[in-house]
Design a protein around this nucleic acid. Sequence first.
DNA 1: TTGCTAAACGGAGGGACCCTCCGTATATTA
DNA 2: TAATATACGGAGGGTCCCTCCGTTTAGCAA
Lengths: 228, 228
Amino acid sequence: MGIAPSSRCRPAAQFQMVAQAKKARKETSLDTTEPGPEGRKAPTRKPRADSVRNRERLLDTARQVFAAGGSGASLEAVAKGAGVGIGTLYRHFPTREALFQAVYEREVDELVTLAETISEGVDAVTAMRRWLHGLVRMVATKRGMLTALEPALESSQPLFSNSTARLLQAAGVLLQRGVADGMIRDDVSGEDMMRAVLGICYAKQDDGWQARTILLLDVFVDGLASRR
Amino acid sequence: MGIAPSSRCRPAAQFQMVAQAKKARKETSLDTTEPGPEGRKAPTRKPRADSVRNRERLLDTARQVFAAGGSGASLEAVAKGAGVGIGTLYRHFPTREALFQAVYEREVDELVTLAETISEGVDAVTAMRRWLHGLVRMVATKRGMLTALEPALESSQPLFSNSTARLLQAAGVLLQRGVADGMIRDDVSGEDMMRAVLGICYAKQDDGWQARTILLLDVFVDGLASRR
DNA sequence: TTGCTAAACGGAGGGACCCTCCGTATATTA
DNA sequence: TAATATACGGAGGGTCCCTCCGTTTAGCAA
């Protein structure tokens, strides 16, 4: 019910999370090509098949559950939907954030790809505008996406996740193009911009939502493009 | 954790709230000069002293608790802090929102007053810029304020609260001045603007927060001021 | 003052979730 | 096939939500 679909908060849990966040890390980055900084002692076993399968199921289910119910959706519902115990869910994704991150990594990928392809043969401001329109369209389609992008703005994590960094960088590149051409002011960073953009995207998605949001983003881009 | 300090959501509670929202109304508007549309039958009793006192205490405590912990803060903490039972809290403020609304009505008052006084003798765009800077300063001071303003963007309520309406109107008036002078585009409503502005104000409040936010709002205002 | 009674109080209680812990089950490997 | 490193599941303790109802008390009239 918050400003996003149902979204937000999670009362006092955050205090425990602080303590917990550390021992998380490990399992989350299962796919980052990281053969191990320390030379593995034993020639580690192959990961168990059921583990891999469950992880996949959890991700699939989480995607659906979050899309339907916002980030506030129950983790227990995700576990049940995936047909695994709650313990299994927590083992794979020690924090709520870890799960989000894993689920929506792909969404971010789409955005990054879009940023790369969209700027072909148009001026920087137009490219920026198109990218943001694309972003709105994607957010409109998959309501969970905003939730996923939210952590991109969290400065709490010491060094943000891979996909966050890539997202911010994609924004930064688009900005830079404009700056280089003298079409966009140079005092706004990719992070700044994404904060404003995602902020504008929040809010209840009622009828005219998409059109209004695009208008507001255009206004913002106009502001970016106004030299002063 | 959310984008706001701790903020947001309230898992599944919202379902019950739907059913509950109706019987709320009444007590909340205790101070709106409303002598009663229907002629009172019996010459109603004077409200009990303890009731008035408790209501006041709850508001005071809630102000502090929300400021410290965001809107996600426990209502039970508020009740305990005020030295009353949880039941008493719920009798006075049947929904979480009712409590917010009552607590922050005054904050909105400040904003509205600011909007009225700030536009003395300056052009419309400058007035708008100053008002937004003032808003950021206020948000920075009282962290709970954003939480309070959030419902301003909820289109869920059939007709929004009094203070919400006044806030949006204040924004609208500032906009109109600029439109009349031809300095501000005419296709953005007060509601649109507040959505963008409050959206931009969200996000973790880390060190450079205030300065960055002001920059982003300036960019937005530049966008508003660019005729096209 | 004293009683009466409407109004207000408080907190137990049933639910939903959160996250942890640990005994049990099983996929890999030898 | 046996040994064992891994993974599984869910009970359990905790927080918070909101409702319900027996108890207390402030206003008012006698």
